[in-house]
Each structure stands twice: as structure tokens, then as C-alpha cells.
Design a binder for these strands. Structure first.
Length: 870
RNA sequence: GCGGACGUGGUGGAACUGGUAGACACACAGGACUUAAAAUCCUGAGGGGGGCAACCCCCGUGCGGGUUCGACUCCCGCCGUCCGCACCA
């Protein structure tokens, strides 16, 4: 007889050791079973794991354990996204070396992850800051360079003039540097870029085939790539108003149909015309300077008040004889998109409208919404962006919008201006090339050398790796690699002269764009072992946060194509299945002074939230995603220490659909824990009172026993289906319902000592242990052992539900009268429509509801519903 | 600003391809056990109304329309909340 409580924290360690002893989770390509690669996005080693990790890795583990039980050769690795800014911040703030800080964090977090009982192949562990890893990454970079996938471009960065450093967008707060508080300046800087735009079309088209990706992620990526068909229109400048060499201004537009409504031209502050004007005009220079005193993030730029500067340049309207339009420099025009210049049509674009109102430009509607009268239609505060019929547009009048686009494009293509067609059809993409240069120490060095005589030359492959120097100082602002005394000095591989190493390091998105491929052969002396990647890739199921929906996933898709081109993999799409899980949220708490409080500092007394120590009142705030700044965090270690990993895992899977945000509550954790204890007691009872292991099924079962068997087999079918669809919350519900319901039956069986019931009881307990194993693996092992079974449940195949026990002979269906449910009907599953109709119309409640009216129609859907229309 | 999602009892949520809305749980209430409490076990319940009662009626999936024999589910228009926006990872 077992103790009366399951001591999870102690027993969990035992089972973890048992798995490790048998190396159950180490994968090899040398295996006859079908492969299955499941991966969760690897963590940044910030210090300790958080509940978001617990949720993410629990989900992945359920899939891994389930697929293993289904007879697959499962690869389920773990590593560390270990380069990045926080390590440098720690160095600046606390004087710890980034490497020490990072590896210490990894050690802590590895221990925490191990305590979760994840079925990971730890033999493949890697950290992106390992020299072995970034060495291979530098090789990939050189291969991509040779393949023409690397370029050098000028880009804008946030410059902190006090700290003399480039700031990340998150380090710019209200236009100021987070540390110095200085006003940020935009600065142009030459950078290394990956030519992702070469693949824009392909990355977009291939989304269609990613049918195991969430629709919303595909949509977001499609919008991000932003393919648009349009027209480059050449506007001729009016003589004498523009500087020399600016006979025309090129504008990209997707709305050539609205050209008759054009009220102005606007160019980006970095447009070459803007620069030319500013070189001789102080006012325009001042305006451009003002534009440069904002962060570079799109969100910031686009929420700015729209401002413009009239350059005095005038252009001729291309299709209205004699009409002229003013040219403004405007703060909301991006140089990166299209030609860096637009024509503004205020009536049909909201931004243009706001600009026109501010600068007193005419608003002429040219598209008439359906049902409006052309003589009275006016634009108020809102631009009209919908479809309609052209008005006020000369030769376009009366055409539909789509036809007008074509007509205008044809007209402009046929005209020449300055010796070239005035309009040229063009497909533009919003997607920009991927700038990977970072002026940081803690990243993968870009293996390039700047030589005064030979230009920029790659580091020869034999000289790799370019290692980060250990002896760096963070006392001086800026990039430590740049002011290291010796590191950057190197002999030019070409001429042998003194040259300078590239001091930029790579964006950490590069590291995470191929780690999944490296996991296939983590110790290979080349980036990827072709056998290994050929066997394991693509990833069958990738799981991670929706916040990575665009950048990480898109970069990885590009990088896989680049690795294909350079011969490192043979596929284009790395992630066959993708699942994005929601965040973990918690209530927030503040004391009387408005200071944030940790959940563990708060307790409920007489229904009121108070501080544990002082009893002082606490204000309970909104439920928000867990963040250190708001202190609404719960440390997984505390939960696992108090309740065990299975409780944390169970809670993370239950109730809330996996793609949605989950609210962590103390009550929920206790509920999960109580349930697991109940399962353990129930299985203990079944072990004591049920049939002995290996007892064959009795020939016949009584009603009680049959009901119990049905419940168990339905649970198996339900959990199987739910896990297949990654509906973990439903899987939990399916496994909780029958132990709850069967309690009495189990007890009854024990009392009556009948063989059929004893058998059913054992069968049910055995099945429960097996279907719960992916979700609560430790408890499942405990139950498996308690029931007297040999071996580990982790080695058991997934149970099959007996289909004979899944379907009932009779069904209960609802009977509606005029769409309202009036009664229900229990009838043979295969009853004919006639029988169902007769039975339904014979019901007293139905007759009453019909109330003597004439029956017009009876809708019968067998096994589902009857609807009498009267 | 642009793009994307989400909204169902007191709470988290379930509901297959349009077919009994509220499964399963949390919290709550009542009961059993206990000297007592905790734990455990049992029972109840969307809201409102009627009936001694088995039961019956009305309303109900953010709001307003529409399609349909039938709508949480499909369509149109609102409202609210959350996420991403290229140097956080």
C-alpha cells in the first residue's frame, strides 16, 4: 500500500534519472522508424526560465513524447540563443564579462529545464556564442558572399551622440537614448546586408504551400513582404524651379487611377532632390534636420504629426495640360520604399488628406462611391479608399477603378518625357534587404577585412574562426571591438599589408536562422552534415511565440534558401508545421505608493488583497503578460519545488487554448495539483482492487463494466485526436472527465468483486497512465509502476482505442420546432428518417409547441437533429 | 499610422464540415466524514419567470443588421481588448 500523498518533487527526480539511464531521448539517423523533428524556439539565456518557457517547452514535449509513442524516431533538441544586447548591458552595469554572464545563465537555466522532465536530446545542446557554432556561421557567411547573397548598403540607424553608440529601437524612448537621455539622431551608415529581396517573390508565393502554418502568420508575412503592382510616373519639373539635373521626379504609385486628384508631390527627407535643395537652402536643411531627430522605427515615424516643407519646386501635371503641383519634403515619406517620392491624392488617401488639410491643398474626389451623387459628393474628415466609378478625371470618367488604372498606365506608357516613357509598370515590394551589421561586441564577428589598397576582402576560410577577443573593456562608450588595442589590426590576405578587421558583428537573427539545421549534426566540422540534414529536415513541428511571426520565421525561410543555394541543405522551407502559442499573463499588484509588488508578496484576506508582511492594502491591476518591470512574474522553480513539474505542465496545458494567452493563477495551480493527486489515488485503488496485471478480458461484460470501458476508450480516442490537432486544453479535458465520472464505478466494482469490473478497472487505469504520459510524464511513470507493469511508460506504444467501444447503439438527438429546442429523442443510431420523424412528432412537448398549426416541413439530419417547421 | 488577431456564465474555457450553447475545470453554496479545521468524498447551479412536483415558458455567445428550417459558427457595419512594425529576443 502506497503512502496517501504522491510526493512529486522527489519522485520526479527518480524518473528523470530512469530516463537518462536508458538514454531514451537521444536520437540517431540510423533508425528504421519514420523520423519526426519537433522543435521549440530556443531560449535567450536571460538568467532564469520564465513561465513562457514552461508553456512553450511543455507543448513541444507533449508532441515529442506522443510522436515517440506513435513509433517515430523523434529529434527534440535544445540550445541557447546566446548572443545579444542584455549580456553587454550586464557587462556595463555590473562589470561581468558577457561570456561569463551568458554561460552562468545557461547553467542555471539548463538545470531548470531539466527539472521540467522534458524529453530532450541534451547530447545535441549548443549555444550560438560557442566558437564552434559561430565558426560555422562565418563559413556560411563567406559562402553566401561568394554566391552573391551579401551586399553592402547604407542604412539609417539611431545614433546616441552622448554615448557615441548605435541604439536599438527599444533603447530609444520618446526620441531619447535610454541611458544618456540625449536626443537621438538618425545617422547613415554602411552596413552588410543579406539580399533577402532577391527571394521576395518566392518567399511570398511559397506561403501558399505552408498549409500547416497558422493562417494569420502567413497573412502577416504576406503583408510584410508587401508585393504591390503599380506604376513609376515621371513628373517633369517646371523650368527654373528645380536644381540642375532634376528635370524629372520619379514617383511610385499603386493608384494611377487617382492621378487627376493629385494635389502635391512629397519626397523623403533623404531624397536626393531634398539634399540638393538643402545644400543651398538653410530653411529646408533645418526641416530635414528636424526629421532626423526622430527614431528610425516605422511605428514612431508613422504616428508623427504629418509635416512638410514646400521646396518651391513645381512639377507639371502629366495629364492635365498647364496644371502645376508643388513639391514638398515630408516627414512621413520613406526613402526605402518605392522611389522615395509620392504624389498625394488627398481625397483617396488618409495621410494625404491630413497633409492637404494642413497645407491648404485642394481635395478633389475622383472616385465616386456607389450610390453617391457626383454633384454633391464631398470628402470630409475621411478619405474614401474604396471602389467606385471615376469622376472629375477627363478620359477616365465613368470607368471602374480597375479599368482606370489600366487606362492611365497605358496612356502614360505611350507618352515620353525626357526621352523615356512617362509611366512604367513596376512591381514593388515592401520587404527591404536584411541589414545584419551591429556595432556590438557580443555577436558573431563578420569575417571581412578592410584593406586600403585591396578594398574589402573576405577572411580566407582557412583563417576562420575570427574569434571574439576575451579582453575587452566596456568602460568607454561604443563598440569594444572598435577600441580594442590589437584585435582589429590584421594582415591583408590579399597584399599582406596592414589592414583592419570588420568590427561589426552579426544580427542575432542570423544565429537563430539556422540553429535548427545545426541541431542535425551539432558537432560536424562543416556547417551541416548533408546526411543528417537530409534525414531530419524539414522540421515537422515548430512551436514558439507569435511575436516571432514575421522576422525570425521569415529570416529563417530566407536563410534556408540561401543554404540551399550554397549547398548546405536541399530544402527551401525549414518548418513544415508551425504553431504559435500565446503568452502567460498574471494580475498586477501595486502598493499604496504605486510600487509594483510580486504575486508572492500579496495575499487575500477577507476577500481583499493585502501585503503578506504588513497587511497593507494592495491595488489589484490589469491582467498583463508577465514582465519583470511590472513584477507580475512567478518563478517556475518555486512552482516545481512546491508542486512538482507535472503540476506546472498540467496547468499550462489545461483550460486555455494553446494559441491564446493564459492567465496564471494560484488557484489554478492548486486545482491542477489536486487533480493529479486524485489520479494517483484512483490508480492506487485500481492497482489494489482491480484485476492482476496480464489478466485477459472476460468474455462478457456487465453494464457497469462496459460503461467504464467505454469511458476509458473514449478518453483514449479523445486525447489522441486532441493531441494530433495540438488542442492540448481539450486533451486535458478529455483525460479529466472520465476519472471523475468513473470514480463511483471503480468503487462499485471493488465492492462487488466481479471479474468484468475488476478487469475494466485495471484497463482504465492502465490506459489513463499511458494517455497522460505525454502531458504529465513523471506521474504516468509512477502510476505505471504502481500498477505493477514492467519497464517505463515512456517506452510504451500509444494505445489504440477499441472502435467497438466508441459508438453507442442509440443516439440522443434534439427535436426543434421552428428552430427552438422542445424535446429530445433517444433512438437507434441507424433509425430511418421516417422512424425519426414519426417518433419526433409523437412527442408531447413537440405537439404542444406546434399548437395545432400546419406542419410545413420537417428537417431531419440523422444522428443530429430534427426541426419541425410549422 | 499600417498590419494581424481576439471577444461565450462569477472565472478559464468546450461545441466536429451551420445542427441540443455552457462539455471539462476553477471559484461558490449545501451535505458527508471530523471534537474542530485542513484534506477527501457527494450534490447543486447561465439569467429571469411560473408550478407542491416531475416539469414548463421567456431571454441569452461584445453591439446592430442580414442569409438560413436552424447561426458562437457564414456575410455587412460598429465597439472594445491585445500583439507586430525591420538594432529586444
Amino acid at each position: 500500500m502506497a503512502a496517501d500523498r504522491y510526493d512529486a518533487p522527489t519522485r520526479e527526480k527518480h524518473w528523470q534519472q530512469a530516463w537518462e539511464l536508458k538514454s531514451l531521448f537521444e536520437a540517431s539517423e540510423d533508425d528504421q522508424r519514420p523520423k519526426y523533428y519537433v522543435l521549440e524556439m530556443f531560449p535567450y539565456p536571460s538568467g532564469r526560465i520564465h513561465m513562457g518557457h514552461v508553456r512553450n517547452y511543455t507543448m513541444g514535449d507533449v508532441v515529442a513524447r506522443y510522436m515517440r509513442a506513435r513509433g517515430h524516431n523523434v529529434l527534440h533538441p535544445m540550445g541557447w540563443d546566446a548572443f545579444g544586447l542584455p549580456a553587454e548591458n550586464a557587462a556595463i552595469e555590473r562589470g561581468v564579462h558577457p561570456a561569463k554572464w551568458t554561460y552562468d545563465n545557461i547553467a542555471t537555466m539548463r538545470g531548470q529545464l531539466k527539472s521540467m522532465g522534458l524529453s530532450l536530446d541534451w547530447s545535441r545542446e549548443l549555444a550560438t556564442c560557442d566558437v564552434e557554432y559561430y565558426h560555422q556561421q562565418q563559413k556560411l557567411f563567406l559562402d553566401m558572399l561568394a554566391a552573391g547573397l551579401v551586399d553592402r548598403k547604407t542604412r539609417k540607424v539611431n545614433w546616441d551622440p552622448v554615448d557615441k553608440t548605435v541604439l536599438a529601437n527599444e533603447q530609444v524612448i520618446d526620441g531619447r537614448g535610454w541611458r544618456s537621455g540625449a536626443l537621438v539622431e538618425q545617422r547613415e551608415q554602411p552596413e552588410w546586408v543579406f539580399k533577402i529581396t532577391d527571394y521576395a517573390e518566392d518567399l511570398l508565393d511559397a506561403l501558399q504551400d505552408l498549409d500547416r502554418w497558422p493562417e494569420k502568420v502567413r497573412l502577416m508575412q504576406a503583408n510584410w513582404i508587401g508585393r504591390s503592382e503599380g506604376l513609376i510616373v515621371r513628373f517633369e519639373t517646371i523650368e527654373g524651379t528645380a536644381p540642375e539635373d532634376f528635370a524629372t521626379i520619379e514617383v511610385f504609385t499603386t493608384r494611377p487611377d487617382t492621378l487627376f486628384g493629385a494635389a502635391f508631390l512629397a519626397i523623403a527627407p533623404d531624397h536626393k532632390l531634398a539634399r540638393a535643395i538643402a545644400s543651398t537652402d538653410r530653411d529646408s536643411q533645418a526641416f530635414i534636420d528636424e526629421c532626423h531627430h526622430h527614431g528610425t522605427s516605422a511605428a514612431e515615424l508613422e504616428t508623427l504629426e504629418k509635416k512638410g516643407f514646400d521646396t518651391g519646386v513645381r512639377v507639371a501635371h502629366p495629364v492635365i495640360e498647364g496644371a502645376e503641383l508643388p513639391v514638398y519634403i515630408a516627414n512621413f515619406i520613406l526613402m526605402e520604399y518605392g522611389t522615395g517620392a509620392i504624389f498625394g491624392c488627398p481625397a483617396h488617401d488618409q495621410r494625404d488628406l491630413e497633409f492637404a488639410r494642413a497645407y491648404d491643398r485642394p481635395v478633389t474626389p475622383v472616385v465616386l462611391p456607389p450610390g453617391e451623387d457626383p454633384s454633391t459628393f464631398e470628402i470630409g474628415e475621411e478619405a474614401y479608399t474604396g471602389d467606385g466609378v471615376m469622376i472629375n478625371s477627363d478620359f477616365l470618367d465613368g470607368l471602374a477603378m480597375a479599368d482606370a488604372k489600366i487606362a492611365m498606365a497605358d496612356r502614360l506608357a505611350a507618352r515620353t518625357s525626357d526621352g523615356a516613357p512617362q509611366g512604367v509598370r513596376k512591381t514593388e515590394f515592401r520587404l527591404r534587404d536584411w541589414g545584419i551589421s551591429r556595432q556590438r561586441y557580443w555577436g558573431c564577428p563578420i569575417p571581412m577585412i578592410h584593406c586600403e589598397t585591396c578594398g574589402i576582402v573576405p577572411v580566407p576560410a582557412d583563417d576562420l574562426p575570427v574569434k571574439l577577443p576575451d579582453d575587452v573593456s566596456f568602460d568607454v562608450p561604443g563598440n569594444p571591438l572598435d577600441h580594442h588595442p590589437t584585435w582589429k589590426t590584421v594582415a591583408c590576405p590579399n597584399c599582406g599589408g596592414i589592414a583592419r578587421r570588420e568590427t561589426d558583428t552579426m544580427d542575432t537573427f542570423v544565429d537563430s536562422s539556422w540553429y535548427f539545421a545545426r541541431f542535425c549534426s551539432p558537432r560536424a566540422s562543416v556547417p551541416t552534415d548533408t546526411n543528417a540534414v537530409g534525414y531530419w529536415l524539414p522540421i515537422d513541428q515548430y512551436i514558439g511565440g507569435v511575436e516571432h511571426a514575421i522576422l525570425h520565421l521569415l529570416y529563417s525561410r530566407f536563410f534556408t534558401r540561401a543554404m540551399h543555394k550554397t549547398g548546405h541543405v536541399t530544402i527551401d522551407e525549414p518548418f513544415r508545421g508551425l504553431f504559435t502559442q500565446g503568452m502567460v499573463t498574471h494580475e498586477t499588484y501595486k502598493d499604496a505608493d504605486g510600487k509594483w509588488l510580486l504575486p508572492e508578496e500579496v495575499t487575500l484576506r477577507d476577500g481583499k488583497a493585502v501585503q503578506v508582511k504588513t497587511g497593507a492594502p494592495v491595488t489589484v491591476g490589469a491582467v498583463e503578460s508577465m514582465s519583470k518591470s511590472k513584477k507580475n512574474v512567478v518563478d517556475p522553480d518555486n512552482i516545481i519545488g512546491a508542486y512538482g513539474a507535472d503540476t506546472a505542465r498540467w496547468f499550462m496545458l489545461s483550460d486555455t487554448p494553446p494559441e491564446r494567452d493564459i492567465e496564471w493563477t494560484a488557484g489554478g495551480v492548486e486545482g491542477a495539483h489536486r487533480f493529479l493527486q486524485r489520479v494517483w489515488r484512483l490508480v492506487g485503488e485500481a492497482a489494489d482492487k482491480g484485476a492482476a496485471p496480464g489478466t485477459p478480458a472476460p468474455v462478457e461484460s456487465g453494464t457497469e463494466a462496459e460503461a467504464l470501458r467505454r469511458a476509458a476508450h473514449k478518453a483514449v480516442a479523445g486525447v489522441t485526436g486532441a493531441i494530433e490537432k495540438l488542442r492540448f486544453n481539450t486533451a486535458v479535458a478529455r483525460s479529466t472527465s472520465w476519472p471523475t465520472r468513473s470514480r463511483l464505478r471503480c468503487r462499485a466494482s471493488a465492492k462487488q468483486s466481479e471479474d468484468d469490473l475488476k478487469f475494466a478497472m485495471r484497463e482504465a487505469a492502465q490506459l489513463l497512465a499511458r494517455i497522460a504520459a505525454p502531458m504529465v510524464p513523471h506521474l504516468a511513470e509512477e502510476c505505471w509502476a504502481l500498477l505493477g507493469n514492467e519497464g517505463l511508460v515512456a517506452e510504451q506504444p500509444w494505445p489504440e482505442a477499441d472502435s467497438a467501444l466508441l459508438t453507442e447503439d442509440t443516439v440522443t438527438i434534439a427535436v426543434q420546432v421552428n428552430g427552438k429546442r422542445r424535446d429530445e429523442l433517444t433512438i437507434a443510431r441507424d433509425a430511418s428518417k421516417e422512424d425519426i420523424e414519426a417518433a419526433a412528432l409523437g412527442l408531447e412537448n413537440v405537439t404542444r409547441a406546434i399548437g395545432g398549426r400546419k406542419i410545413k416541413k420537417v428537417v431531419i439530419v440523422p444522428q443530429r437533429i430534427v426541426n419541425v417547421v410549422a
